[in-house]
Simulated scan of single mutants.
Amino acid sequence: MPIAGRVFRRLVEELRAIKSNPSDDFDCRMLERNPYEWQFGIRGASGTEFEGGIYHGRMQFPKEYPSKPPSFTLLTENGRFKTHKKIRIRRLNDWQPSWGVRDGLDALIDEMPTYPDDELGSVEYNKEERRDLAIKSRAAAPKYGTSERRKLIDEIHKYLLSKSPPVPVPQLSPSRASNGTGGSYVVSGNTFHATNSNGVGILDSMNAFSDEGHKLLPSWLKLFRWRKQN
């Protein structure tokens, strides 16, 4: 069988295996007009600043595949790798012909939270910036390429979003500050306790006040309530 035929057969088998045993952490689709290029999406790893994020990209297979690994290009701004540039995944330096698409995507997920170390296509953002980009990435899939490609990207985004838990809200340590009304508030976890200047409680918790009461809250507290609910 010609090399191109063997590679194509291998890719079809891999795609079939992924569809029969799907992952909650990634999804991929083969381009109909070019089976040697796939669209993929990954979820950010739990417990990292990428958690909750959905990152899209392109995967291109060389004619020597699986003797040589596929190349990866990210389309979603992420704070770890440049977009629209081929990137280097260190674990794939030791690529084995027995590895496949699943191994490559798992390696990319693991690589995201690591220190860049000046590798190909890397960028260095702080954790807060990466966290903001992770939340932003959920809003919509990137618009890229032909209508066929955009359709695949949208399908991948919808699937991964269905597998993603809500964006986690950081637990705040207990603190006390002025609420600007002569009183004070205490934050403990996700619970708020506020008092007026006479020491009378005006809010038992974020989950126990009416819409009418919400109108009376200071703007900072309204914002925190909105972020907690979303």
Results as ranks from 00 to 15, higher is better:
N190P: 04
R150L: 08
Q171K: 15
R131D: 04
K85Y: 14
D110Y: 05
Y55D: 00
W38R: 13
G189S: 08
S178I: 04
D27V: 06
T195L: 12
S147Q: 15
E155H: 06
L152T: 03
Q171R: 14
N190Y: 11
E155Q: 12
V187N: 04
M112T: 01
D94H: 15
F8Q: 10
H56E: 08
A134V: 02
I87L: 08
P174H: 09
D25Y: 11
D117G: 10
S162E: 12
P218D: 13
E32Y: 03
K63H: 07
P168V: 01
D211W: 13
G182N: 05
A4S: 08
N190D: 11
F50Q: 01
S205A: 11
E148R: 14
E128R: 06
K163P: 05
L160Q: 00
D103I: 04
P174I: 10
M206V: 09
G5K: 04
T195Y: 14
A141T: 13
P166N: 03
P22F: 07
N179W: 00
L75C: 13
D24S: 09
N21A: 09
A107F: 08
L92C: 14
V169F: 12
R6A: 03
I87S: 03
A141C: 15
P69N: 05
P97E: 10
E128A: 08
V123I: 15
N21D: 12
S23K: 02
R10K: 07
S175R: 13
E212N: 14
D27F: 05
P174R: 04
G41V: 15
S175L: 10
I156E: 00
